[in-house]
């Protein structure tokens, strides 16, 4: 009775069971080894890589490892992989054409990891979009804009486009263009600009602020004030410096003119003749 209870039903092939059991063992052991390999690789190689490099390495090990384990398991099941791969070869050509863009993105991703034009957490500008690099994957990068939108940018686009890394360097210069009235004294204005920059808390003493007279504009004498600050102080400097400058200009009675045009008659500065006409 016990032997009959334990006998397999006729429709179940013992050979199939053995294969399936073997495949299951392969899968279990394979995934466990894969997890261990992943951990060891990240521990030894990870410190030498950037955070995005670690992310890509982790994904690579996972995808390749899973594919390898599945192939071995299928082989264990007795499936003829040669035939499958042969058929896949034809399909592969078609898929290859379709996957051109994905492959290009993956390869571009490797170039970005090697070249490291930016890292996770950097603020970059690309195609008019600014934001913080949130993730850098095999196919694309995710940018988080300052108003908290998420923008996905393919790696191929990053390699082909001009990317401005705003936070690459620890200090940054804030440029402020200023125009004052033509009757103002250039030397006095330069002195006031220098004094305002010196007193601003975020403005660094060194490098020296750039203060130059840039030219005679249509409506004003033009100056450039370039104040250096730490990256983290840029936003504050951008708010405080123009305000302090305006307040100081008000105290010094320095005019900031609006754009205007003076119309003069043909005879130098004579009044424009006006003739009354009766219809």
């Amino acid at each position: 009775m016990a032997a009959q209870f334990l006998a397999l039903p006729d429709f179940i092939d013992p050979e199939f069971l053995r294969s399936a059991g073997g495949a299951t063992v392969v899968l279990l052991v394979g995934f466990i080894l894969l997890a261990i390999t992943n951990k060891i690789a990240i521990e030894f190689v990870g410190p030498r890589l950037t955070p995005q490099g670690v992310m890509v390495l982790r994904k690579l090990i996972r995808y390749l490892g899973v594919a390898f384990v599945i192939i071995v398991a299928l082989n264990q099941m007795g499936l003829n992989l040669g035939a499958i791969l042969g058929a896949a070869g034809v399909a592969g050509i078609a898929i290859g054409f379709a996957a051109q863009t994905s492959l290009s993105n993956i390869i571009s991703g490797f170039f970005l990891i090697g070249e490291r034009p930016f890292e996770l957490g950097d603020v970059i500008e690309i195609d008019g979009i600014s934001g913080t690099v949130d993730t850098l994957g095999l196919l694309s990068l995710t940018l988080r804009t300052f108003d908290n939108r998420s923008v996905r940018i393919p790696n191929e686009t990053l390699v082909k486009s001009k990317v401005v890394n705003v936070t690459r360097h620890p200090i940054r210069r804030f440029n402020l263009d200023i125009g004052v009235g033509y009757h103002e004294n250039i030397g006095h204005v330069l002195s006031v600009l220098k004094n305002v920059a010196e007193k601003n808390v975020q403005c660094l003493d060194e490098p020296d602020p750039l203060i130059i007279f840039t030219g005679f504009g249509d409506s004003s004498l033009n100056f450039l004030l370039g104040a250096w600050c730490l990256q983290e102080d840029y936003g504050t400097l951008r708010n405080t410096l123009p305000r302090e400058l305006k307040e100081r200009f008000d105290v010094e009675d320095i005019e900031i003119p609006f754009p205007h045009m003076t119309i003069a008659s043909g005879k130098a500065f004579g009044p424009i003749p006006i003739k009354m006409v009766d219809n």
Partner: peptide, 19 residues
């Protein structure tokens, strides 16, 4: 005293200090 921040180094590397 209110100290003025400055930078010691070049534009790509250095450290913040007071002037």
């Amino acid at each position: 005293d209110s100290l003025s921040k400055s930078w010691h180094g070049d534009r790509s590397a250095g450290q913040v200090c007071y002037a």
